[in-house]
């Protein structure tokens, strides 16, 4: 048990860093895939359709 916790401590990533990358990822996916802005929609149109995002 001690070895396990020591091993996992060696590779542990801070929750703050995990939250930051997840938040950036969510913003990216939302902007490229879901945001209903006219300009974004037109630019991302084909990718949104082909990647299965709801579109139009």
């Amino acid at each position: 048990m001690t070895t396990l916790s020591r091993a996992s401590a060696a590779v542990s990533t801070s929750l703050r860093d995990i939250f930051i990358v997840a938040a950036i990822g969510a913003v990216l996916v939302f902007t490229a895939g879901l945001a209903q802005s006219e300009t974004l929609h037109d630019a991302a149109h084909d990718v949104r359709h082909a990647t299965g995002f709801p579109c139009h």
């Binding site: 995990i18 950036i24 969510a26 913003v27 939302f30």
Partner: peptide
């Protein structure tokens, strides 16, 4: 889009390792 997915994926992987 895939960069966004990758950031979410690596966050989940790091969480699983933790």
């Amino acid at each position: 889009v895939y960069a966004g997915y990758a950031l979410l994926l690596v966050a989940a992987i790091a969480l699983a390792e933790n």
